[in-house]
Amino acid sequence: MLEVTGLHVAYGGIQAVRSITFHVNEGEMVALIGANGAGKTSTLKAVSRVINAVGGDVHFCGEKISHIAPHDVIRKGIALVPEGRGVFPRLSVAENLRMGAFVRDDKAAIEQDLLGVFEYFPRLKEREAQLAGTLSGGEQQMLAIGRALMSRPKMLLLDEPSMGLAPIMVQKIFEVIRKVAADGMTILLIEQNAKLALESSQRAYVMESGEITLNGDSARLLDDPKVRAAYLGE
């Protein structure tokens, strides 16, 4: 479904991503793991056109998307949950969710999907009228994921959904992410928490200094001694 070939990202002279190639099949949850600064977020930003890649191609559902406008990416069916959540602090929870459906015009179906998001995250229903800025970090992460779902994406890109959250909240968030995946969503997950990411995904790519150094089934990577030493602290 998503094909990334030879993607290259640089900031000035600094090479953040060095010509990486990976793919995500329909219905799969694929993790991209690696240490801080390995180039994971840059990869995701280049795929979602927030930044321009220096080189390489991105194809989605067979269509080349590496040159479209950033605001058209979501129209192709890719929704990014950005690092740090990026909720609109002075919009209400409900308005944030409706912003997620900005590209849609089917009012009745939007209301339907709103209920679907509240089913995934009952906490958001309780906070519906509250300003998003007043939510806790975990609630904001729920909101950011719910907002991305509101566009009815074909694929979800998650950038560090566990970042800065208490362990219990991380568990809750990942429970829902697995549920969303089980409901058929294609997901590309970026995580520093390698154990969690490998336990949740089917396949994974390991990034190091802007390159993909390992890839394969998540279960197998979880047992790989190199991965265990480098990312699982053993």
């Binding site: 605001h71 929704a79 609109f88 002075r90 919009l91 912003m99 900005f102």
Partner: peptide, 23 residues
Amino acid sequence: KLGMAMRATSQNPAVASLMGVNI
């Protein structure tokens, strides 16, 4: 909807663009 997009853009233009808003 335009008004909501304007408020969202004033709060976080990068994310508003992710939502499909033409800044």
